[in-house]
Amino acid sequence: MEAIILQILNGLDKGSAYALIALGLTLIFGTLGVVNFAHGALFMIGAFCAVTLSRILTLSHTIVDETRTDFLGNPLKVEVPYVHDIFGVSTGDVIIDWAVPLSILFAIPVMIAIGIIMERGLIKHFYKRPHADQILVTFGLAIVLQEIIKYYFGANPIPTPAPDAFKGSFDFGQALGFDPNLIIYPYWRIVYFAFAMIIIGAVFAFLQFTTFGMVVRAGMADRETVQLLGINIDRRFTLMFGMAAAVAGLAGVMYTPINSPNYHMGMDFLVLSFVVVVVGGMGSLPGAVLAGFLLGVLESFASMREVLAVLPGLNQIIIYLVAIVILLTRPRGLMGRKGVMEE
């Protein structure tokens, strides 16, 4: 029992990342009909937004501290972050400590801007081209974005820690009445899961309960009719692209403490996220979220020692295996709608 709970918990954080990326992919596909291979790169850029902000916050200048001396007897040179000068030492330290959560505020405008520039500058010209061309051009864009990040941040992973308040683990088992230390779960992963749920909830609420969302949903169902009603649906779809980029970016920002960001993390996630989208059903938002969590949890179950003893290597291939089976038995995916992407 406790092993099962532990695996479900372990699967949730990865599943959250899959679900968020797949949600963005589906938003773009459902609104604009574009298969965006650069979506993983957006996830990665989000993660590097967090890196950038924490670097900005720790920008420092050197002062000479007369009260202390180094081992040669000279006055000690101390690096002082500018944040200390502005907010005082204690507040400054808190700000630096909370760099990753603060990056959310920084990442939202940046990601929306990147998304809109991408859509207006490049993807707009590909609506009438075949899907293969869309895949190819966004694939090229992903390479370019990835290489730019690699040029500025280097090829090595950059550790970006979570705030001190979230370090350590929560004894989940004890809370549920099991023995202590059986089910322990890092706090940050709980935060990540909760964050993912909030974002997913926000996106659904936005689409369901606002007029803007209603128009977008109408546009997804029948673009032409909405246009005939005198609504500029293209502008709204562009904004949705920005929003999808922001969702991917935020997923990346919050993922940095779990996995140190490197320039190819986006591609690693993208391949899996595509599988997630296909399993969930192309164009179905709830399907994408469901499949994301489902595959995350399945992957974590497949990496249990007991399972690996019977079927070695299953954890490496389980997602692809599930995708193949689903595509062959339920061609539209778990929750795919009729008439989407069918030849």
């Binding site: 899907h131 895949i135 599988v275 296909v278 192309m282 490496q316 291939i317 692809y320 995708a323 193949i324």
Partner: peptide, 18 residues
């Protein structure tokens, strides 16, 4: 279409992992 691309990708990644 796109499904074919993803299926072949899945098979290749599976072969790689194995």
């Amino acid at each position: 279409g796109i499904y074919f691309s993803i299926l072949t990708l899945a098979f290749a990644q599976m072969s790689y992992s194995l």
